[in-house]
Nucleic acid binder design. Structure first.
Lengths: 169, 169
DNA sequence: CAATGTTCTGTTAGAATGTCACATATAGGG
DNA sequence: CCCTATATGTGACATTCTAACAGAACATTG
């Protein structure tokens, strides 16, 4: 899968699937998807956008918990969020967007192929690409000058199909 | 030109050429290459590595000036450096490496083609690529999902030819 | 179960990176 | 020479990220 999700897709599915995939992956690898980790991932799964660590913390603090009206847990400290993100990234469940200093839930957890990002400057949505063509071309071009790539960062900012459509209207 | 410079290349030339090119470009476009701007650019031209804004400031403060022994100007404030870098980037004389939060002098000022970076994780040197193949492949892959790229960030971390060579020895 | 070691989370402080707002200086054009 | 636009100085501050240590939760072994 690649490209932007339809504007009216069933987003509940994305979220449920993402959590299920995380569950499965952690099980397989003998790591623990604790409540904290699950919650951070869930916040990111809640949108197809990148969020800063502090935004994530704030969002976690804002979410109501328990039965009491208006009850909300305190936002976790930055350190806690970064640690959790490190874990989720090591599991391939979350990616960091270097050009935004922000994080996004992985669209295809389980796959470990190199990935490229499409970032819409207008609506802020981010899509994941897994283009073999890009990976190959990039690797080859580097090889041609004797360079061995082991961590490609490919983040393409521009306009998504929907925002282009809207602009034409 | 692309790829890493030979370890023993005449680096004085890089520096002189870089400054000359900057001079010419600013002249052509009616902008001013002030002493401050020239100095920041020179600091970056002094090495084929990326430097943080604060490192640049520190380096500027460390450089001796005038005749008196040990005399050195104060390091400029961060704001000043960032402003100057903004200018140099707008002229295409400097690039920002998003994955490092650092800046590097452009290897081919004047050209405005999209550029890719090769970052050696071992020696820290950075080379610039101007691969048509990469640009085309990336643009095409994005187009395929209806996305219009206008600011590609392509930064490839890995090992440069020289460090690979050294590792084999 | 108790004892112990490992992993996870909380907490405080601080480093590194980047920006805002306003004051001052300087270059260039009428 | 004056005036305006541009460039730089300055201090405070916002944002992002990490170090260091303490406590809690969990797993394992005897």
């Amino acid at each position: 899968m690649s490209g932007f999700p339809a504007l009216n897709h069933d987003h509940g599915h994305c979220r449920a699937d993402g959590l299920a995939a995380a569950e499965k992956l952690c099980e397989e690898r003998g790591t623990r998807l604790t409540p904290l980790r699950r919650q951070v991932l869930d916040v990111l799964l809640a949108q197809h956008r990148a969020m800063g660590a502090y935004d994530i913390a704030q969002e976690m603090g804002a979410q109501e918990t328990g039965v009491a009206e208006g009850s909300s847990k305190r936002a976790p400290a930055a350190m806690t969020v970064y640690r959790t993100l490190d874990f989720l990234m090591s599991m391939g469940l979350v990616h960091k967007l270097e050009s935004l200093n922000a994080f996004i839930a992985c669209a295809e957890p389980g796959e470990t192929h190199p990935v490229q990002f499409l970032i819409c400057r207008q609506c802020g949505r981010v899509a994941e690409l897994e283009s073999e063509a890009i990976t190959e071309t990039v690797t080859r071009a580097a090889q041609k000058v004797g360079f061995e790539v082991d961590a490609p960062v490919i983040e393409l900012t521009g306009r998504c199909p929907d925002c282009r459509q809207a602009a034409r209207a």
